[in-house]
């Protein structure tokens, strides 16, 4: 089911540049779908500091490692709803697989590893956020039993 030779793991110190590159690619891709996703001028640098934070353990991050090459990653943060029965949700905000590795189950692998990790921490709900027009993400999550759940409206002020 998954591509042979792919190791799913947490990001390490040595992954900094590669992880930053994947983060940047993810945002560049989504820039296509909504003007509110326009990249900052120094997005490269910001991607590096985001990579540092993920490596330091912020939220949940899993990378797909193919013989030292990072082929994809997933990142989620934890959203708390103190009054709800499911008081903690893992919110997937970033998921990216390099084009030449697509269609081999790596994104599915990343998603499943993430669900295992959050579930072992007692989180029972996973959500995913992406631009409304991103039909690629919509197709991906719908196929994997995610359902429409929240509406997010945006207005510039």
């Amino acid at each position: 089911m998954y591509e042979a030779g792919i190791v799913y793991r947490k990001p390490l110190e040595g992954d900094r540049e590669q992880l930053a590159n994947l983060i940047l690619r993810f945002y560049r891709f989504n820039e296509e779908f909504d003007p509110a996703w326009a990249l900052a001028g120094d997005a490269d640098n910001r991607a590096l500091s985001l990579a540092d934070r993920y490596i330091a353990g912020e939220g949940y991050t899993i990378v797909a490692d193919h013989e030292g090459e990072l082929t994809g990653f997933i990142h989620a943060y934890v959203q708390e709803y103190p009054l709800l029965e499911n008081s903690k949700q893992a919110v997937i905000v970033e998921l990216y697989v390099k084009p030449q590795y697509r269609g081999r189950g790596i994104a599915t692998g990343l998603l499943e590893k993430l669900m295992e990790a959050v579930s072992s921490d007692g989180i029972s709900v996973v959500t995913a956020m992406f631009p409304t027009a991103n039909f690629v993400a919509e197709r991906f999550y719908s196929k994997r039993k995610f359902r429409r759940y929240l509406q997010i409206y945006l207005r510039e002020v």
Binding site: R25, R28, F29, E32, K98, P99, V136
Partner: peptide, 10 residues
């Protein structure tokens, strides 16, 4: 496949 605009091309 590693071109900057590759995902846009998709």
């Amino acid at each position: 496949p590693d071109r900057e605009d590759i995902d846009k091309l998709m």
